[in-house]
Simulated assay, not measured.
Amino acid sequence: MAALAREELAALAAIYCGPEECEVLAVSETHGITFRIQITVKELLDTDILLKLLFHLPVNYPSILPDISVNSDQLTRAQCMDVKDKLLEQAKKHLSEPMVHELVLWVQQHLKCIIRQSTAVCSEKTTLSRGAGTEDGIWILFLHLDHMRAKAKYVKTVEKWASDLRLTGRLMFMGKIILILLEGDRSNIKEYLILQKTSKVDVDSSRKKCKEKMISVLCETKIQPQHARYNLTFEVKDYSTIDELQKEFEAAGLATLFSEFVPPLLK
């Protein structure tokens, strides 16, 4: 791992040293550093905005842009995505130099403007596309299932849905963890969710057919331009270790998605 990334992380930890302000999630010589910075933007729209920024610095950072994830209970998902897009635009201006602190300072200064623009654009899109059934681009859906009692039937059903809806991705098993990662058109992603929640896809403890009631939607979002669609088929895969599962996400350019949602499932 580049010494530059380690030095930057140490500097950030010194700056954001309050409780939960800077948290290291993963450090790997082969996969890079993943950490979360939590900041509060004061006096924004008459309230304080708690912003959680997740950065993944790949091994070749800063020659390669970091992956960034943005979350906030005070902002909508669309607003968080707009903040993320703006941060990635800024990151391109700092390529080949340490940039995380600059990005954090920039978002503190410009968050109010981003939210106002996001609200205006969202309103305009709603007016122009009211009644439209789809959104351009490829979307990703990330699901967690609690269990499968009728595993063979369940797997075949998921494979059929994915095929019928032209969705690609993975049905992943790692110990007791069951994950579904899907990529495809927005309308087909939505249709899959409806099928998943309304069809009798499993059996209950009495072996009677039942609907899926123990499903969690971990993430549903449009794939960003820097993450080209990588799946060409839908596959069912078993992983013996968490490292194998992590490599699957990293190979897809989805290391941030893994770091944000999978480790909590292990607790």
Rank of each mutant, 00 (worst) to 15 (best):
residue 87 L to S: 01
residue 52 K to E: 15
residue 102 E to A: 05
residue 241 T to Q: 12
residue 94 H to T: 06
residue 186 R to D: 04
residue 128 L to D: 06
residue 127 T to F: 10
residue 67 D to W: 06
residue 119 T to C: 09
residue 40 T to P: 00
residue 78 A to L: 09
residue 227 H to R: 10
residue 173 F to S: 03
residue 137 G to Y: 09
residue 222 K to G: 01
residue 230 Y to D: 04
residue 186 R to N: 01
residue 130 R to W: 12
residue 263 P to T: 08
residue 166 R to W: 05
residue 138 I to H: 06
residue 183 E to W: 03
residue 63 S to E: 12
residue 56 H to V: 14
residue 116 R to G: 15
residue 47 T to Q: 07
residue 8 E to H: 06
residue 103 L to F: 06
residue 22 C to F: 11
residue 126 T to H: 05
residue 203 V to D: 01
residue 66 P to V: 06
residue 68 I to G: 01
residue 73 D to G: 13
residue 26 A to G: 05
residue 257 L to S: 02
residue 185 D to K: 03
residue 226 Q to N: 04
residue 255 A to C: 08
residue 39 I to D: 03
residue 156 K to P: 00
residue 198 T to I: 08
residue 118 S to W: 00
residue 225 P to S: 02
residue 263 P to E: 03
residue 217 V to H: 04
residue 41 V to I: 12
residue 104 V to D: 05
residue 84 K to R: 15
residue 95 L to D: 00
residue 68 I to S: 01
residue 141 L to C: 07
residue 199 S to T: 09
residue 34 T to R: 04
residue 11 A to C: 09
residue 70 V to M: 12
residue 181 L to G: 00
residue 73 D to E: 15
residue 220 E to C: 12
residue 233 T to H: 15
residue 156 K to F: 10
residue 202 D to Y: 05
residue 263 P to S: 06
residue 140 I to F: 06
residue 6 R to L: 15
residue 98 P to L: 08
residue 111 L to M: 11
residue 103 L to A: 03
residue 114 I to T: 11
residue 135 E to K: 09
residue 68 I to F: 05
residue 120 A to S: 11
residue 16 Y to S: 05
residue 25 L to K: 02
residue 102 E to M: 04
residue 73 D to H: 15
residue 14 A to D: 11
residue 70 V to K: 02
residue 47 T to L: 12
residue 53 L to V: 15
residue 260 E to K: 15
residue 241 T to H: 15
residue 165 L to I: 08
residue 16 Y to T: 01
residue 236 V to D: 05
residue 138 I to M: 08
residue 129 S to E: 09
residue 248 E to P: 01
residue 236 V to F: 06
residue 213 K to Q: 12
residue 202 D to W: 02
residue 239 Y to C: 02
residue 146 D to G: 11
residue 242 I to V: 14
residue 70 V to P: 03
residue 126 T to F: 03
residue 65 L to E: 02
residue 248 E to K: 06
residue 194 I to W: 13
residue 126 T to V: 11
residue 266 L to D: 04
residue 84 K to Y: 07
residue 226 Q to E: 10
residue 235 E to A: 13
residue 208 K to M: 15
residue 259 S to V: 02
residue 243 D to A: 14
residue 245 L to Y: 02
residue 118 S to Q: 05
residue 144 H to G: 02
residue 162 A to G: 01
residue 239 Y to F: 13
residue 217 V to D: 10
residue 9 L to W: 04
residue 38 Q to A: 14
residue 207 R to N: 14
residue 10 A to T: 15
residue 193 L to A: 07
residue 26 A to I: 02
residue 260 E to M: 13
residue 223 I to S: 03
residue 206 S to R: 13
residue 91 A to P: 02
residue 73 D to Y: 08
residue 3 A to Y: 15
residue 149 R to W: 05
residue 80 C to N: 15
residue 116 R to Y: 13
residue 25 L to H: 01
residue 177 I to R: 09
residue 65 L to P: 00
residue 259 S to A: 09
residue 173 F to R: 01
residue 111 L to W: 07
residue 61 Y to S: 05
residue 5 A to D: 04
residue 137 G to F: 07
residue 168 T to V: 10
residue 265 L to G: 00
residue 60 N to S: 03
residue 94 H to M: 09
residue 264 P to H: 10
residue 126 T to C: 09
residue 90 Q to N: 11
residue 212 E to V: 12
residue 228 A to T: 04
residue 22 C to G: 03
residue 191 E to S: 08
residue 175 G to E: 07
residue 66 P to Q: 04
residue 220 E to L: 14
residue 99 M to Y: 02
residue 205 S to W: 03
residue 248 E to M: 07
residue 65 L to F: 05
residue 230 Y to S: 07
residue 101 H to W: 05
residue 222 K to T: 05
residue 126 T to M: 13
